[in-house]
Design a binder for these strands. Structure first.
Lengths: 148, 148
DNA sequence: TTTATTGCAAAATGTTTGCATAGCC
DNA sequence: GGCTATGCAAACATTTTGCAATAAA
């Protein structure tokens, strides 16, 4: 069951959008709600299906728009794995992704600062990177995503 | 100028293909030659354009086929960055990729074993990964790819 | 001669765009 | 009223597929 946004989450949305002169709309609330409700890295299409449960009239184009907007204002991250469709993730803490070969599921893996540091250290002088994407691909015995 | 395959490279191709009952064809030689000649992580389309210089009649579908075959037998790696088209890379040593924000160019970054180890160490028990993909995104002052 | 590969065209996929309509300070 | 967002349909780019013709071992 998809819950409504908490007051806190609504403010978070409001603030992030407001910063760049963008508006809170029912569609954006719906999409954001969906993203927070089940943090299983849904594809656009999955977000669309879920959003329609909350708001039956919402269009796919709008879901694309909302997600793009959210990425733009830093509310969610895109997750890409090979040629698969883009997935979305509201976990803003630094983390890596693990894609299960068998189930296709994507899990978040915590990324300690010292590992990030060791990664940055391999960059030759003159290379400066803000974004590091790390993704594992393999088998997970765990049946479910760790809570996140 | 695109060189011909060296004897050594042709044997490498022959062996990798032969292992899985696949044949050496002029098209595969052409595509492989192109990949080795300029290691700048070309897209399928770029490989196609270059391959046509060597073999004017070659088709796009065949270039797709060749690349898929090469990936399948471990001759090249696919490199994906966000929604951009897939790029191909004949560097088989463990390495990360750095994509320059400004030029779009992709550079190989050497990946020391101890960094790989530290990355593996962040996986919770039960998670087992053969493949780790690491990509940086940022600015490179260096004008050109380091030789590779 | 057998089996794999090619090349073409058509289809599928995922995403983006243009634009008229609608909604919000 | 002016700006932004929505929803639809059409356009797009990339990749995949089916299949008859061709070429490699």
């Amino acid at each position: 069951m998809i819950q409504n946004l908490t007051e806190h989450d609504r403010e978070h949305l409001q603030e992030a959008l407001g910063k760049s002169g963008q508006k809170v709309t029912p569609q954006r609330e719906a999409v954001f709600t969906v993203l927070l409700a089940e943090r299983d890295h849904p594809t656009v299409d999955e977000v669309f299906q879920r959003a329609r449960e909350v708001m039956p009239g919402v269009s796919l184009a709008t879901v694309y728009n909302c997600l793009e907007t959210f990425v733009g204002c830093g509310l969610v991250r895109q997750v890409n794995h090979e040629r698969e469709s883009t997935r979305y993730c509201p976990n803003l803490a630094p983390h890596a992704h693990f894609r299960d070969k068998e189930t296709g599921r994507v899990h978040d893996i915590e990324l300690p600062p010292e590992v990030i540091k060791s990664l940055r250290s391999i960059l030759p002088p003159g290379f400066d990177s803000e974004v590091i994407e790390i993704s594992f691909h393999g088998r997970a015995q765990a049946k479910d995503s760790p809570a996140n």
